[in-house]
Amino acid sequence: MTLSSHMIHLMVILFASIFTDNILLARFLGMCSFLAVSRQVKTAVGLGLAVVFVMTCTVALDWLAYRYILQPYQIEYFRFILFIVIIAAFVQFIEMVIERYSPVLYQNLGIFLPLITVNCAILGASLFMVIREYTLLEGIFFGLGSGIGWMLAIVAMAGIREKLTHARIPKGLQGPGITLIIAGLMALAFIGFTGVLSGG
């Protein structure tokens, strides 16, 4: 594979994971925080950025652990436990570092980090990376793309919900009800991208 065609391949993975194979709206992973923290665009951006960062890094770390620890001993079936442990440790570590060296960033982002540990999209991205047999570089681009895709979805949702405060919504549908309906409509729109790009 030439360098440029390799680049194109990585870009395809990136854009596929952002749009056609959006981890949130096509795979429905990470719904919990998606519904809970999409009241305001500002907080959604904060959580989104945290997810992008953590997802990119943990996919890389999990790839290394998979390749150099699990595969040599043929204990791939332990990947769920190992990946979760690595994600949790990484988030803890990052939280400490940010709190120490950038209090402003910590205030903006740090409070979202603990929320992310239990975000299934993060684990999901690592597991997809295994299933699709990505190389390390591909995995990183996939993690980055999935993170951006997740952020895109939550920020869009927060934007809609901010506008929604001015709408008259039937009482029974207020809150989670209308949010789920919107999520469904957004997912339909994203499913429209299916087949445009294929990253897998």
């Binding site: 043929q74 204990i75 332990f78 442990v85 803890q92 400490m96």
Partner: peptide, 29 residues
């Protein structure tokens, strides 16, 4: 034998990460 190795490896990784975190906390905080 393989089960024991597997358990050993996973526990080892867990213990390693835990030590790393404890150490990091000492240094960073």
């Amino acid at each position: 034998g393989t089960t024991a190795v597997a358990i050993f490896i996973i526990s080892g990784v867990g213990a390693f990460l835990a030590t790393l975190l404890v150490f990091a906390e000492r240094v960073i905080t």
